[in-house]
Nucleic acid binder design. Structure first.
Lengths: 360, 360
DNA sequence: TCGATTTCTGAAATCGATTTCAGAACTAGG
DNA sequence: CCTAGTTCTGAAATCGATTTCAGAAATCGA
């Protein structure tokens, strides 16, 4: 019966000043105010100044919803990363946000926890929000997701990989070639007994999978293909790096080089090696990937691959800004990675003992 | 003269399916479609199912701009953190995002780089976007910023601190009391020669400042006030932790306990201590703050304070969701921190040598 | 079976800024 | 001083979804 308004549902107590209020104060039409804001050059200077004064007086800010509705542009970009807990993604997102902010864009953020279904849902939610562009991570995305993007007609770019399928442009590094180079470097040092620790548990982590493939390919090419037991699959954590190393050297005590697909795993591996009394790099060379801050501070400092995360973020921002503006954009960008040789890798001690022959 | 349309400015090639299209297909009015979407329970089930089928067939998604315009709610929250590069913030943001996502909210993210002016600008940009709530970090915010928030009438909460001024509710831990407890613990172990490494360079970092105050207060209370030369101010980095420790033990070779305001500094300090041949904890106890993943994996494992970052993020999300809904909300929430005693701290070796007397 | 409720549905107004179109004001040339 | 041409400004339509209001249909009791 009596419909008492439970609680005033609008927390905005002041009814928000709108363009009409400004227009009335300045004694012009709303159209003129809009022009002052959007095309200042076509309004007579004195009038423009007068309107501007009133805009400032009333602290008027235009309602972006109404604006977006009419113009069809939200000035908003969305990004979906697997997780923010990894410094490498946090760094990229931060750079992305900074660059977008300079251009008047705002960044929606979501995370998929390495789950493709979740990625799809988050994307759906972002597209409903009317984003003007989208940033993804990695090369493996479901068909469903790609068709959603296509249907929405939103420019997209994927990051941290140098190329991706489905006609999606990419900006990042060639992960496979990076680990291949790293492996070849270790081969040149004289190593013949390898182990690999790879975080390939998450189904959608194509970066780590590519890294593992780079290792395998280089070793196959060298006639030293990795046996399954020489590859320990891990999740993403220090603790897993520890246990993986233990398993590896237990199964293959003669291992002289361990290649990890992330620094976190490598750091865990180094900690465990020390605990097991294995000197790094004297008896065991260990390498990582990502070049996190800690890598250089380890004892010994970690040999790793440096990933230009900030550059990836900036590049993705620039790409989308241009794509939205209709400017020409590159198809994909392969950014250079950098092998950082530090002291966690060295020629194998056993190399002197048994020479470079391959027989056992 | 001839006004050729330069480039089709709308990248959406298909004209986007709207509610009217669905209505026509389903042979109902737009109003009914809207009701199916927003109040399914008041629509006759069979009709609802029919409409739903067409919604799915056409892959209809409502235009959030139009929706926001009419309803005045964007279903969007903004967060401004100092930086994402710190795991502790990344973790909190991730938890925040996850919880918001569950409730149909989307998260705008921005970062201030510890710069109050920048924080203000980003906030302005977020408010123009019509966000429904805002999450900040820390207790020190300019008056300008507070009045902007008040004027916008947007609910706000600040995080990582247990209380904040200006009537802004907070959720987080009491940083000062945490370091005070940590210091008292070291005092109980018998330490009398302290040093502190604090990242208080950034003007707006009130968390670290509070932590430093906690140390100072505990030591003053114990009759061992810290001299300025026993406090090394640092920025946020491992390298600074290293150099700070070197400076500290150079100026005060008899130091037995070093309290750092972040784990990163502590880890740098430990690395430098090892390099200088100072055994931890035998000759030097070192403690950190944050309990990052690496802390437990150090050698020796680092004594530190665990900060419930995920809980802070979730709590902030819940607070805002309730505040927006008009539900009652707590004023501020002090979350429990946890002192994690590991092996980087121990009684001073010199304690045996010189007893617990305070004279020198 | 008829009238009184109750339950649903549709037409139309609304949110606030933008932009087209046309007309007003002004300038310049004759 | 008048007309042609320019430059500006305002009225009104528009973007797409939501929601009020009133009317249609269905349900119920007598």
């Amino acid at each position: 019966m009596d419909k008492k308004p439970v609680i005033a549902p609008k927390s905005r107590q002041q009814p928000r000043v709108k363009i009409e209020d400004v227009a009335r104060k300045a004694d012009v039409s709303p159209a003129t105010v809009s022009r002052v804001l959007n095309h200042p050059d076509i309004v007579r200077p004195e009038l423009r100044d007068r309107v501007m004064r009133h805009i400032n007086d009333l602290a008027y800010t235009r309602d972006s919803a109404a604006r977006a509705l009419k113009s069809g542009r939200m000035r908003t970009i969305g990004v979906i990363v697997p997780t923010l807990a990894l410094g490498i993604f946090a760094e990229g997102v931060e750079a992305l946000q900074n660059r977008l902010s300079e251009s008047g864009y705002t960044l929606f953020i979501a995370n998929s926890q390495y789950d493709q279904r979740r990625e799809f849902q988050e994307l759906r939610s972002l597209i409903e929000r009317g984003i003007d562009g989208i940033v993804l991570v990695g090369a493996s995305h479901g068909r469903e997701l790609r068709s959603l993007i296509e249907q929405a007609g939103v420019p997209v770019i994927t990051t941290y990989v140098a190329k991706a399928g489905g006609g999606i442009p990419a900006i990042g590094i060639d992960n496979e070639s990076a680990t291949r180079e790293m492996t070849e470097y270790l081969l040149r040092l004289g190593h013949t007994r390898f182990g690999a620790i790879a975080n390939v548990v998450a189904a959608s982590n194509d970066r780590s999978r590519a890294r593992l493939e780079g290792i395998q390919r280089a070793l196959s090419d060298a006639g030293l293909p990795l046996k399954p037991s020489q590859i320990v699959k891990a999740d993403y954590s220090l603790a897993q790096g520890r246990s993986a190393l233990r398993q590896l050297v237990t199964d293959h005590p003669d291992t002289t080089a361990v290649i990890c697909t992330t620094d976190t795993l490598a750091i865990g591996a180094m900690a465990e090696a020390r605990k097991m009394g294995l000197a790094v790099p004297a008896t065991l060379s260990i390498t990582g990937f990502d070049d996190v801050e800690l890598a250089a501070q380890m004892d010994p400092p970690l040999t790793t691959v440096s990933v230009p995360a900030a550059e990836i973020g900036r590049g993705a921002a620039d790409y989308l800004i241009n794509a939205i503006a209709g400017s020409p954009v590159p198809k994909s960008v392969a950014l250079p990675y950098r092998l950082v040789m530090r002291s966690s890798s060295a020629p194998p001690r056993s190399g002197a003992r048994r020479g470079r022959s391959r027989d056992h």
